[in-house]
Design a protein around this nucleic acid. Sequence first.
DNA 1: GCGATTGTCAACCCGATGGTTGAGGATCAG
DNA 2: CTGATCCTCAACCATCGGGTTGACAATCGC
Lengths: 129, 129
Amino acid sequence: MTIALLASILNHMVELDAPVLDDIFHALGDATRRRMLHELAEGPRSVGDLAAPFAMSLAAASKHIKALERAGLVRRTIQGRTHLCRLDAGPLATAHAWTAHYQRFWTSRLDTLEALLRQQDATTPPKGD
Amino acid sequence: MTIALLASILNHMVELDAPVLDDIFHALGDATRRRMLHELAEGPRSVGDLAAPFAMSLAAASKHIKALERAGLVRRTIQGRTHLCRLDAGPLATAHAWTAHYQRFWTSRLDTLEALLRQQDATTPPKGD
DNA sequence: GCGATTGTCAACCCGATGGTTGAGGATCAG
DNA sequence: CTGATCCTCAACCATCGGGTTGACAATCGC
């Protein structure tokens, strides 16, 4: 059963152009869901807890949670009548890995930024050290 | 004018819960657009070049490119009758930074993975260092 | 058993998205 | 000037997404 876990993790790290990314990025493309993830980062939350901060019906919030589940970002355990949601950041690692693939295209800009700051530093009168 | 560039870059790195992220993640949530970015990583491409690999009309591809532009991922320069598109990875850095914020929630799992691999390594007969 | 609580489900509304086609504005080649 | 090329724009269509409401299943407290 640890094998399944391993396969799941490795799959997340490798499969970079899959439809999985559609679900992940789609889930992240909504401020409400990002705020929910932010909340879940503090610990497990019930559906009601997650819905509370928003001016929307419980059903609407439930849909958002389902979107997060479809992306694999949230897992749910049912305890009695309350549904306990917890964060699963694995898919976020996938998204992170995908964006990292393009890192060389912005690091050059950051190097430029650093150079500009250094230059500006040189032109401004030094205030000691 | 370098000030504007600086402000743009810094803004990208800081503004983490802005509606900008909506556009960025939404742009990334489509396989067609991700493939376009992949192509643009090779160098500047015309609209026709970007549309060619896909079984869709030029107008449809044009809409995808507009979505990428809205997210700031693509900038366009018009040369005669052809529109030259080039990658701007700055917003990708923003997305990268956002996901990084949750890194501690998956690194633990990766540590588990590493531990499992190490353990497996120890149990398999070593083939000479 | 009964009422209150938690949450899903289904139907519905409406704006956004992704696709098409057709028309047309520029520009390049001749 | 003329025709071909590149691309956008507008109209249209189907589907999706996010929101609502109302009904209902299941559980907890009593």
